[in-house]
Amino acid sequence: MALNVIPPIQDSAAGLIEASSTDVDEHCAALGRWRLRYDQISAGAFRGSFIQLSLPRVEVFREITSQQVRQYGQLGADSFGIGLPWRGDSEVNCNGASVAGAQVIACVDAEVDMCTPKSFELRGVVASAALIRDLAARLEIDLPRAVWHQLRVFEMAQAPVARLRAHLEAIHEAIATAPERFQDPTVRQALEDALLVEIMDMLPTARPTDPGRSANARKRTVDRARELMHGNGDRSLSLLEVCKAAGASPRKLGYCFQAVLGTSPMHYWRAMRLNGVRRDLKRAGGAGTSIYDVAVQHGFWHFSQFSLDYKRHFSELPSETLRRARRAA
């Protein structure tokens, strides 16, 4: 399968960036200054697109991903971000809470860790946390403490959320039909001011959602299991070892993963290890690289089953990934 990557297109006058890709890592690399990492959880060919319009002090974005993805990292140092799920096959999960209705995802200077569903679209705004703090002080607005230093799902007043949605809809319609209008500095400034008015109207009404004690307990169990899965050095633990270390039976762990991530622990872990193999193969490129050795390093001992799983997950064989890496070397 040929990698169909459209390199980022940047219009310096309008501050417009557009990119699309059939590879989750290439998609992630197109996210500008965002320092995020994506892992593809669901199986199938990946399709992603990203559009960003840079205004004087604010960036407006639209992101579409075809597969279920875990996103983690940072938007950037001292960044404020607010995101509105636009569509998806199911709910997005953020810190154990799902987003619906007038809820939004927001954070200031925080780590990002969320799981998005298949066929997902997210639209939103990113700015500096300093800008948000300065505007709040000037307008005598008390920002809720819960928006700082943690990605959260918030209940907010419906009216400003609806107005922000309308602004974002109009912006992306204009990007598709008449992007030249954003070359006018007056238009860009007026648009930024309108967005900031709605954001400053929304934030004082923000109330973090409380998933409840049982949901929090499930989230802690999943976090502990994922920490073991991801942080065990060169040796791949067995699922039994993860269950024992997390203090959960396989049945309980499966229930927790399904509630928090929408998938089973075995599928999640296999997906993470397959992503690891793919990245190692793409980095390798050398003639001496052995697919079998790389697979074994990530805990795959049954090579024919590994090849089938890899093909099912990424819609290409591991040999095709390695062949492309060698051509690019």
Rank of each mutant, 00 (worst) to 15 (best):
V197I: 09
K219T: 10
R224I: 12
G231N: 08
N232Y: 13
R226Q: 13
R224H: 11
G231S: 06
R220W: 07
G231F: 00
S214P: 05
T209H: 04
L196P: 08
R226P: 01
E198C: 10
L191M: 11
A215N: 07
R207F: 01
H230D: 15
A225F: 06
L228V: 10
N216R: 13
D210C: 07
N232F: 12
E198H: 11
D193T: 11
P211Y: 08
P211T: 12
S214E: 15
P208S: 07
G233M: 05
H230F: 12
P211R: 14
V222D: 14
A217D: 13
G233T: 10
E192K: 06
R213W: 15
N216H: 12
P211H: 06
D234G: 08
H230A: 14
M200V: 09
A206F: 00
R207A: 03
L191N: 03
G231I: 00
A225N: 10
A194G: 08
N232G: 12
G212S: 10
M200T: 04
M200L: 10
T205Q: 01
G212C: 05
L195N: 09
D210H: 11
A194Y: 03
M229S: 05
L195E: 02
L196W: 05
L228S: 04
D223L: 07
T221M: 15
D193L: 03
M229F: 03
G212P: 07
A194S: 14
R220F: 13
E227W: 09
V222L: 10
M200K: 05
